[in-house]
Structures are given as structure tokens and as C-alpha cells.
Computed example of a mutant assay.
Amino acid sequence: MSKTTQANFSASIKNQLDTVQVMGILNVTPDSFSDGGQFTHFDSALKQVEQMIEQGVDIIDIGGESTRPGAVDVRVQDEIVRVIPLLKAIKSRFDINVSIDTSKAEVMSEAIIYGADMINDVRALQNEGCLEVVAQSNIAVCLMHMQGMPRSMQENPQYKDIIDDILEFFKQRINCCERSGINKERLVLDPGFGFGKTVAHNYEVLAKFTEFKALGLPLLAGISRKSMIGNLLNRDVNERLAGSLAAAIVAIQQGANIIRVHDVQESVDAIKILKAVAKYQI
């Protein structure tokens, strides 16, 4: 690498680190793969939010329906009851950005009414009514790539070229959003680690994550505690902190603007180390 190229790369990393945000996961579901049932009680959920804020979180991501492999669908009204009262409580008590992890237009509509800052949709606004609901607002939205559906997405997923396939998917969804009146500047992209991808697919996506920067939009990486870490390291879901942090660091170095995590304090600390080192790079 030439000195000029190295300097440009270092400057890019420094700028990147200045804008990296930590999204803390708050699952209010009984069956999420890592923390299912842990924060279904209203008071315990609010206590977890307060703790994450103290630890330096930038965004709270509330999920009312598990999207783990084999997950069962949740009724619209049940999901609304799980997430909307909590959203209202958080926005009234704390000065923090809140994302709602949902694929249902009705939930999105309620979330927008009560002050959500982002919609995080694993189906990339493909469900009926979602494009229209988001288009009528100014809310940010994260479009995630997923091959198949949660119940069956891990049954022998295949790609011609996984990076090209995901890029093409994103281009199509961006075009759909723009045609529906959703400005491109409101979009965030997530290649969907663990969603219709083998272990090998996931690590190829992580290794080539920077290629998604070609689309000119912020990127989200959600790798925390996932099976791609557990299967590689032979670790149970609550023994994946080291692997999750290593993957998050790689994602940030490959251009991630947001990392979605269970372990906020440790992730914030890791980013501080990256920033401290970046000060002394060319």
C-alpha cells in the first residue's frame, strides 16, 4: 500500500469512527434466540433501557416478534401491545433515539405516531402496506436482506454470488422506496447476517462488507451472539461476547455505521479503543 493510499485509508477510518453508532437490542418477546423472556416485564425493560443509556448506547431497538430461525408469527395486536407502551414510556422518560424492529404496517404506523425515530425491517418494506406507511412519514428505515422467511430461511440457502445478489436486492428495494416517495437519504442498509445464509456466507459478507458502501448509504451490522459465532467457536449463546466484539470491530473497519448489539458497554469500549488508535495512524 502506497503512503498516499494508506493516508486516504486512515482518514476514511477516522471519519468512519466519528459516526459509528451503537444500537442496543431490547427484545420484548418470550422466544428471542438470546434474551427471550428476559425483558417482557415492563419495568425490567425500562431498567434495561436506562442501563444501556448509562453505558453509552445511541439507539434502542425494540423488537416484539422474534425473527430467529423457526420463529412463529406474532399477531399484529399482540406485537402492538408489546412494543408501543414501551416506546411511549421511553420517549417520555429518556432523550434517546428509538428504533422499532417490525415488518408489519400497522405496527409501523403506531410507532410513527408515538415518536419512533427508525423502523428496522427484516423484510425491507416488502409486506403489504409498509411502503405506504413509511412514505407518509419522515422516519428513517433500515432495509435488511433476508433470503426466505424466518421459519425456513436456514434450509440450504444458496446464492450465485452472495455479494452481487445482496447488492442487486438493495438496488431493487431502494428503487421501490424512491418510487413510493421515500427519499434515499432516509435509508440504512443491513446485509442480514444469519438471515438465509450459511456460516461461510456470513463470513464472506463480513469480509467484503465494505463493498456495500458503493450504494452510498449508511450500513448496519447485526452480528451480536449469532450462530455464525457460536458455530465457529462452539460456544453457547451466552458465551459469545468475545466473538461478537471481534466481529463488530471487523464490521466497523469494513465500513459499518451502526452496530446492533446485546452488550452495549463492551461494544462502546471497543469503539473507544479503535478511536484511540486511529489518532496515531497516518
Rank of each mutant, 00 (worst) to 15 (best):
V81H: 06
V81C: 03
R82C: 00
R82H: 02
R82F: 02
V83N: 06
V83I: 02
V83H: 02
V83T: 03
P85I: 00
L86F: 07
L86Q: 04
L87Q: 06
K88P: 02
K88F: 03
K88D: 05
A89G: 03
A89H: 05
I90D: 09
I90L: 11
K91L: 06
K91Q: 05
K91W: 10
S92T: 00
R93K: 15
R93I: 00
F94G: 00
D95S: 07
I96Q: 12
I96M: 13
I96Y: 11
I96C: 08
N97K: 15
V98M: 11
S99G: 10
S99Q: 07
I100L: 15
D101G: 04
D101L: 05
T102S: 15
T102E: 10
S103V: 00
K104D: 08
K104A: 03
A105C: 07
A105T: 03
E106Q: 13
E106R: 07
V107G: 05
V107P: 14
M108W: 08
S109N: 13
E110N: 04
I113A: 11
Y114L: 08
Y114C: 09
Y114F: 15
G115I: 02
G115L: 12
A116K: 11
D117T: 01
M118R: 13
I119R: 08
N120T: 02
D121V: 01
V122E: 10
A124D: 14
A124I: 06
L125W: 13
E128R: 13
E128Q: 14
E128T: 01
E128F: 04
G129M: 12
G129T: 01
L131T: 02
L131D: 07
E132G: 06
E132I: 02
E132C: 01
V133M: 06
V133C: 05
A135H: 09
A135S: 14
S137F: 07
S137W: 13
N138G: 07
N138I: 00
N138E: 13
I139H: 11
A140C: 10
V141P: 05
L143H: 14
L143V: 03
L143M: 10
H145L: 14
H145I: 02
H145E: 14
H145P: 03
M146L: 13
M146V: 01
M146T: 02
M146K: 13
M146Q: 13
Q147V: 01
G148E: 11
G148T: 02
R151W: 05
S152K: 15
Q154K: 13
E155N: 12
